[in-house]
Nucleic acid binder design. Sequence first.
DNA 1: GTGAAAGCGCTAACAG
DNA 2: CTGTTAGCGCTTTCAC
Lengths: 340, 340
Amino acid sequence: MPVTLHDLAREVGVSIATVSRALSGAPGVAEETRQRVLAAARAAHYRPNVMAQRLQKQRTDTLGIIVPTSSTRFGDPFFGDFLAGVGDKAIEHEYDLLVSTRAPEADELHTYERMVRERRVDGLIVISTRPHDERILYLLEQNFPFVAFGRSDIDAEFPYLDVDGEYGMYHATRYLIALGHRRIAYISAPYTFMYSTHRLQGYRKALAEHNIPFDEQLIAIGDLRDRSGYNLTRDFLSRENPPSAIIACNDWMASGAIGAARDMGLTVGQDLSILGFDDVPLAQIVHPRLTTVHQPAYEAGWHICDMLIRLLRQETLEQRHVLLQPELIVRESCGPRATS
Amino acid sequence: MPVTLHDLAREVGVSIATVSRALSGAPGVAEETRQRVLAAARAAHYRPNVMAQRLQKQRTDTLGIIVPTSSTRFGDPFFGDFLAGVGDKAIEHEYDLLVSTRAPEADELHTYERMVRERRVDGLIVISTRPHDERILYLLEQNFPFVAFGRSDIDAEFPYLDVDGEYGMYHATRYLIALGHRRIAYISAPYTFMYSTHRLQGYRKALAEHNIPFDEQLIAIGDLRDRSGYNLTRDFLSRENPPSAIIACNDWMASGAIGAARDMGLTVGQDLSILGFDDVPLAQIVHPRLTTVHQPAYEAGWHICDMLIRLLRQETLEQRHVLLQPELIVRESCGPRATS
DNA sequence: GTGAAAGCGCTAACAG
DNA sequence: CTGTTAGCGCTTTCAC
């Protein structure tokens, strides 16, 4: 049987309240008494029952994150690093981290309700934001503390951190244009992700600035996995007037693109330029190594968690809206347009 | 203010005890009363306060897993899939999943004590088991429910699920021997992981069976990252009598090995055979695609979580020790020994 | 079939 | 400085 405050009180010969005060470091306890209590607690290996504390304090000291496990599952190392950042920050401030897997199909909102209404957590981190994100709408309506990783287009203000996808894609596209490319294909992520729109905007902006007409034919939508990058690239390359460069919305699809180019006898970096997004470890393993836009996953998770904790502690956030500028990492998968 | 049992009781005009019974489906409440309570609960969007339930029931309905975030961080997709399996199983049985990141250096055992003594979770999943694993020793001593992913060499029985690394490496090595290889280098994982020993045993067993002397010179220890696979491979290949095949203890190091071979002008699959372990998505992306031993990460997580839940429910485990047989996945990174 | 009451282990207001 | 008391919201005997 675990030892309780009550046990300690009896042993030391004081009241349970005094023990509680002594242990919590509250004022109004004789130093000598405090020492006796502390000694007894140590001797008995006393540890508080957190459930009792939580019930009383009406706080859980727990943060939650709901992760869709469907398509990519956690499999994406980008997410793993993000989670590591969140976890490290949480433990630093003695918060527990509740991770709930939930396929988006399976009434995701229900999982949010469970977290909120049953008071399992004090705050939530919302990831993979979507246009008109109902999860955010719900949390806002419930007035429940959260921070989102990503923006949305809903008509309300909420705290978020995002990586500036428009900025990233804009610079990536400019880079390719500077290399002489004019026909640049673009493999988008599904538009159910908010970031897809932002990134596409960056691409269009760079095109427009250089008076390159936007060509609907050069846009395709992948499912984020390497297989779809592969297939879509084969499509592009089999056309009459194939692109000389391809941008993919993540490194997995870009890697698939590299495979497709290789299978079609092209040398990536010479005959065809390929550019990715995320800069996961894979980007340095494929051959040629991938030129890509670096997303600081670990730092993003860490920072978001920090924002959430501040929110819960009623500290004022110096910035409720953080936009990180991703950096283009130049490696070997892009080169000047082949002059044929 | 959230609505409580008390609120419902007043509203329906019955006692709080009756409401509790009606909601929990306990017997001894008139069907008509139950319906009225249920209706009121639904109307008021009633949800129980789980902390109160937990305090009362002396159960947390929460499972815990402590993840070292150091070296590989979560970055390894193998781990991500494992976690997805655990999470999906947990939610299926309405268990919460507490994920705690903790660098092994940082007094990992302290995190376990916190989980156990403060009763934050009902049971734990222990991953990356080690020789003489102190975490397992501690949990055993505390008589705390847990299931390990991996075995240990301690002198006590405990429930675990493991992938049979010896079996996997044995078959992998045999495969290479059948292709004519005699000098097979081996890049091990650090011996702080229990599985390193098992896998090495499989390698040695296959060698012995074919009367190939074990050569200490052909063994190296990597840090699981592609960089070390790269460096170690360069080492091996710069020797006087280089190996004709290399086995790496995970796909990341194997991918690094592929890079090294390429940089040294060798064609992998012809001049040099390379074999990995895990079968993460990366294995199908590198060129040539990696022949490797498949570890069912998601299924392992799912199964372990299932075992733990049964343990907590006092159901008898039909098997306290599960050993999964991994399968060799043949792709293109291995070929017959070049006859020079 | 229903209600009153005790108590899970802890914190905090109020007395003394 | 210390003890008494009243809950936090819920489950579960034990009476009626």
